[in-house]
């Protein structure tokens, strides 16, 4: 079987008239609209998390009785409703705080357990005199300050959270005091505290 000659598509030189300028312009614009519209629709949805606002929740952490005024930090999970896209999880542990109360103080101070360096959870073993972060081994004193100051990997001291005491009247006439904390999430890695919300 003899091979038929190969057929090459022929090209023309680019046109140069004024009319063709409009053709080029129109081709680019219509083509761009046709192809970029779906891309734009995708990008808007993709970037939509930037538009969603979140708020720091007020969370009941513990009863005041659970934080004796001995200056020792106590670990408490932060339990609040958590939303994740289409799900709402009631009463989830969304983080952790350390509460400690100095002798004679009415109110405890609260530290978020999230490390200001890279967001790992700072650990504390009962009886120790420091907090330790397991990831890049930052060490903090019990008052939240960095053990070695600026030599510590963490750029700032542990983040303190606003505490509020709320009194609850009991049916039998007595009362209990609850410790509430505004659970703020701070941007890590900076010298200053910036809430992420």
């Amino acid at each position: 079987m003899a091979k038929p000659p190969k057929q090459q598509p022929t090209s023309l030189p680019p046109p140069k008239s004024r009319r063709s300028f409009f053709a080029v312009f129109a081709a680019i614009v219509t083509g761009a609209i046709a192809t970029l519209t779906p891309l734009a629709a995708g990008l808007v949805t993709f970037l939509s998390p930037l538009l969603r606002k979140s708020k720091s929740p007020q969370v009941r952490i513990a009863l005041l009785d659970q934080v004796p005024d001995d200056g020792m930090p106590r670990y408490f999970p932060v339990v609040a409703d958590r939303e994740d896209a289409w799900n709402r999880y009631p009463k989830q542990r969304i983080g952790a705080v350390y509460l400690s109360r100095q002798a004679g103080e009415a109110s405890p101070i609260a530290f978020t357990a999230k490390c200001p360096h890279a967001g790992c959870q700072i650990g504390y073993t009962a009886g120790n005199d420091v907090f330790q972060c397991p990831c890049h081994t930052s060490v903090f004193n019990l008052d939240g300050t960095r053990s070695r100051g600026d030599k510590e990997v963490s750029p700032r001291d542990m983040d303190q959270l606003p505490v509020e005491l709320r009194e609850i009247k009991l049916a039998d006439g007595g009362a209990v005091t609850e410790v509430w904390v505004e659970y703020i999430d701070f941007q890590t890695g900076h010298k200053e505290k910036h809430p992420t919300t």
């Binding site: 993709f46 998390p49 930037l50 919300t197």
Partner: peptide, 17 residues
């Protein structure tokens, strides 16, 4: 940085998105 994280995570926290 902060905006990029939010876009990568699909929100402020880790989740479905």
């Amino acid at each position: 940085g902060a905006a990029l994280k939010k876009i990568a995570l699909g929100g402020s926290d880790y989740g479905h998105q």
